[in-house]
Amino acid sequence: MNQSPTADVANNRVKTDLNLAIGQGLTANQIYLYIPPTLNFTFTPPSITIADGNKCITDNTYVAISGTVIYKCVGSGVTASPVTGATDASTDSTTTGPSTSTGASSGSTQSSSSKIKSTPFIQAMTVTATASQPLYENQWNQIARSVQKALEAKQMLFDDEIQVALL
């Protein structure tokens, strides 16, 4: 599943992915800075157990589809019958990764005997990018759209557009 073995490795991956995505966003929008933007973010990756398969069976596990964690399995039991709804990510509007949240819009069903259900896995974070040159708000918005596309190409899916707030 390509899960990071430690929090430090996960943070380094996030930092690398963000820097690459912002570089791609700047290039895609033909914005050339003499000094690359400075990024500040706080990310605390959760320690998770990824379930075998693509269905929620065990409480407090996570379902990954195509390498992206989509669902958290929650319930009162330890083991239960499979729960449907965590089987197809192609129709979900999902998010995972920097500057966004991860979640799924499709509803899940719950086995009456199990009390285990799939809920959207949401991972949100705030990233502050500081440029050495002034940029207009519409330029930041264009960069944000390009960054989101670059991150989505790396299996980081979004349920909303990246929001730009000028400081």
Rank of each mutant, 00 (worst) to 15 (best):
S81Y: 08
Q123W: 13
V127P: 00
K72S: 14
N60P: 01
S106F: 09
N138L: 12
N19D: 09
I65C: 06
G53P: 07
L20W: 06
A86V: 01
A129K: 00
Y32I: 07
D92W: 07
F43L: 11
M156I: 01
T61D: 11
Q30C: 11
T100C: 14
S106V: 06
V147M: 04
A80R: 03
S146A: 13
N60H: 12
T109W: 13
Y34P: 05
G103V: 04
S4V: 08
C73Y: 04
S47Q: 12
L39R: 00
P134L: 05
N60Q: 13
S146G: 01
A7Q: 14
M125S: 15
R13Q: 15
G107E: 04
G85D: 09
T58Q: 15
C73F: 02
N29S: 04
T109K: 08
P98G: 10
Y71S: 06
S146L: 04
A28L: 02
K72Q: 13
S101N: 13
T87D: 15
F43I: 10
F121S: 04
L33H: 02
P46G: 02
T49Q: 12
Y62N: 12
Q148C: 04
T102E: 08
G25Y: 04
Q24W: 05
I70Y: 15
L157P: 10
T91G: 15
N29W: 03
K15S: 08
G107R: 09
Q133R: 02
T61S: 13
P120H: 10
N138E: 11
L135R: 04
P82A: 05
M156H: 11
K154G: 02
D88L: 07
D92R: 07
T94G: 09
K55F: 06
S66F: 12
P120D: 06
A124L: 06
C56P: 05
A7V: 08
I50F: 07
K115Y: 13
F158T: 07
L20F: 13
I48S: 10
V14K: 05
N141C: 01
T126L: 03
T119K: 09
I65D: 01
K115P: 01
D52W: 04
T49P: 04
I162Q: 00
C56D: 05
N141L: 06
S99T: 12
T38G: 02
Y34M: 11
T61I: 01
A124I: 02
T94K: 03
G103A: 06
S114N: 13
D160M: 03
I65M: 09
A131E: 03
V63N: 02
A150L: 00
P45H: 01
I143S: 00
T91F: 14
L26S: 00
T27L: 09
V147Q: 01
P36A: 04
L18V: 00
P120E: 10
A89Q: 06
V9I: 06
I70C: 05
P134N: 08
S106N: 14
G75Q: 10
I57H: 00
N29E: 11
V9Y: 00
S4P: 12
A21C: 08
